[in-house]
Amino acid sequence: MNEPKSHSVGKSAYAPAPGRRFEVGDRVRVKRRFPPGHRRTPTYIRGKVGEIERICGAFPNPEELAYGFDGEPKKVLYRVRFAQKEVWPRYTGPDRDLIEMEIYEHWLEPAMAGTSDEKK
């Protein structure tokens, strides 16, 4: 993806979460899974390919916290950047438009360059 440098990541001062799986710039796919229960991964982004914009750190798993568990061990949280035209087949804005959100590591898998939303 070509983006203007003006919205580069900006270094984060937060703990980089050692033992993490992904690095800034990695191409990733959000897993196309539909489990029941509390999730913080919106349906509209599942199966989509983007790139790691920053590493947010490690946090207790909200999918467990929601049911009264302590959410340990913590899970690594990333911000992932997507091109809007990759997310919405009928997106009417310019190709340069972006959408970014936070995705937990267990919802991500590596994506090959140039792949799009394929069922695996």
Binding site: H7, I45, F59, M101
Partner: peptide, 26 residues
């Protein structure tokens, strides 16, 4: 861009609109 227009905000196509879905801990 359509929502922005409802708020009276119009941006040319050479400006990137960057949406952030605040869906977890940030």
């Amino acid at each position: 861009r359509s929502v922005l227009k409802e708020f009276g905000t119009e941006l040319p196509d050479n400006v990137t609109v960057r949406v952030h879905d605040s869906n977890a801990d940030m």
